[in-house]
Nucleic acid binder design. Structure first.
Lengths: 343, 343
DNA sequence: GCTCCCCGTTGGAACGATCAAGACCTCGGG
DNA sequence: CCCGAGGTCTTGATCGTTCCAACGGGGAGC
């Protein structure tokens, strides 16, 4: 009996308490919880009844200490920003939490230091607070992936290792090019032939990837992309200005954009000029954000399968944490197109 | 020496390793970490050097086991939804993670079961996986608060205990009425006298609170609210229809809405009728969402001080977890108004 | 010179679980 | 009849930290 006589009744019951009540040893209770098939059927029932009666749950700290694992997945929240990108990340986090929960894991969020992206990872890793990480901002070309690999920290990245094509860590990503290609084909099928692109500056891997899909779709139909593209900052105003210039100089009948933010800029330009989105000029955005859903007349947008992505990430994590570890190839998911009034 | 000779060098160093290197006992190292002022200055330096050299971090599981605390704050993510409300929650979570991090805590997210809102809380509580909870959806009138209090689980709610005015748990909330009053006064100051309200159905405490601010502002100026209000579902279409009816029947020159979603509906109606938001009819939303920022011509919106709210929540949590616990009164924060083109 | 006190330090025990190995029983084969 | 195998349960040790009570040295006071 490990309990001190007179102990307050609110204290949580331990393995030993259950063992005593069921008339078995601690180890047997432990087995009942973790390896039920090792027990004889009637013993199992007896132990389970005792667990039920006492309302016993294994103490996480003790289990973590012994097994050297916490069943926690660490994820860094990128530091404060008011911008578009994080809406998608938040949707991903939601899905991730649900999926990890089903797999018996929880998600631990920690804050990122803007100056030192490694800070935080290091602490959690050395104090064995998490079993693995999910990394979401590899696209910055930041040193996280290399650093984590060097420390032998298990992690899965949501986002391709753009700058290191033969990186060996597991990753899951959405095929941005396939998304914009889908969007562009959708417009081609509607009869558009002059389809412009508004994307991000050339140093963005993701931006160039998305642009490639637009370019590929046009070239497949033998159409030229010359003069039909613009690369700007990811702001509404940039989209507005870029689309104004393109309308004057290239006379497109449709726009494909690297983000919903840029697409909103296009919608502004159309409104400025008395043109109707959808009817006169088609517009397609990227991310299927809240904005795309509520704006008039509805913004057609490429939708990332973030729920699937979360499932794949958790799957890869489970492989990584298995004995022996299973590590599969990178996984690329195809986005879909949410069609609305603007196309 | 607790280390097995030949142990793999990647294994994390322990307190005993540091103690041996520094030539002191375990307890002294522990004190160096937790109560540095108990040590003589030169000893402290020696221990800190050893810690530095080995790259030691205390093992979280062992510490948690001994101290019966995890330094984790649990927060339940409400189950999958594609709606407006969670954008604000996500912004709150961001701030919460940053603030808890500064206080030495981390945030553990867990998934909510739609059917049984208590599921999840129970597990984490009994297995001592978290020290406390942050509860965000008290407004549903769900049983969490009562349940948690009964279990003596420390928690702070973001949201007032609407249905139980003399609840004793700490809470932090944003004064919605103050926000809509601010919005309405802003319109009054611009010369508007016929200001309509579009809000949520009567069974929403939050909706009624926000409505009260509008009503109060009008009555303070001796203006009537009769026939100027509509209560509908929180969708764009509802806002659109409600505003169409109000325009016909009450001829308002301005709208105050319980959400940006409803305000978007108003903007749609104005566009349908060739009216210009801001110039012809003023519109104000609530939450200062992404949408408000990018829509044309910019939607004036009540902005909740979620960063402050997170700070207050963490402050309340620290009080709750102190010895002895300090529990302060509920805290109501005043929102601000983000003024844009629509007003 | 002795005691007392204080400060810094020490070894042992405890937190609650799992791991490793052994004990006991039953059963079948030589 | 004895032995080994396999299934079931028990015992002792251990994970890495902090709590507890006790210990030793040095200065102040008598």
């Amino acid at each position: 009996m490990s309990r001190i006589p007179g102990r307050v009744p609110t204290a949580a019951p331990t393995l030993a308490d259950v063992a005593e009540l069921a008339g078995v040893s601690r180890q047997t209770v432990s087995n009942a919880v973790n390896n039920p098939d090792l027990l004889r059927a009637d013993t199992l029932v007896r132990v389970q009844d005792a667990i039920e009666e006492l309302g016993y749950s294994p103490n996480r700290a003790a289990r973590n200490l012994r097994t050297r694992s916490s069943h926690l997945i660490g994820m860094r929240m990128s530091p404060g920003q008011e911008f578009t990108a994080n809406a998608a990340i938040d949707r991903f986090v939601h899905s991730l939490v649900e999926t990890t929960g089903e797999a018996g894991y929880h998600v631990l969020l920690f804050a990122g230091d803007g100056n030192d992206p490694l800070r935080g990872y290091d602490d959690l890793l050395r104090s064995t607070a998490v079993d693995a990480f999910v990394v979401t901002d590899t696209y910055l070309g930041n040193p996280q992936a290399a650093w984590l690999r060097e420390r032998r920290a298990p992690f899965v990245s949501f986002g391709r290792p753009w700058d290191d094509p033969d990186a060996t860590h597991p990753w899951v990503d959405v095929d941005g090019a396939a998304g914009t290609e889908l969007a562009t084909r959708h417009l081609l099928d509607k009869g558009h032939e002059r389809i412009a692109w508004i994307g991000w500056r050339k140093d963005s891997f993701i931006g160039e990837d998305r642009r490639a899909g637009w370019s590929r779709a046009l070239k497949d139909r033998g159409l030229s992309t010359t003069g039909m593209a613009s690369r700007v900052e990811d702001t509404v105003n940039s989209g507005r200005e870029a689309s104004a210039v393109l309308l004057d100089e290239a006379r497109p009948s449709a726009f494909v954009c690297a983000s919903d933010t840029l697409a909103m800029g296009v919608l502004h330009t159309l409104a400025d000029r008395g043109l109707r989105a959808g009817a006169d000029i088609a517009v397609i955005g990227f991310d299927d954000s809240q904005v795309a859903q509520v704006v008039r007349p509805g913004l057609t947008s490429v939708r990332q399968p973030l729920e699937d992505a979360a499932i794949q990430v958790v799957d890869a994590l489970e492989g990584l944490l298995a004995h022996p570890p299973r590590v599969g190839p990178g996984i690329l998911l195809a986005p879909t197109l949410a069609v609305r009034g603007s196309s």
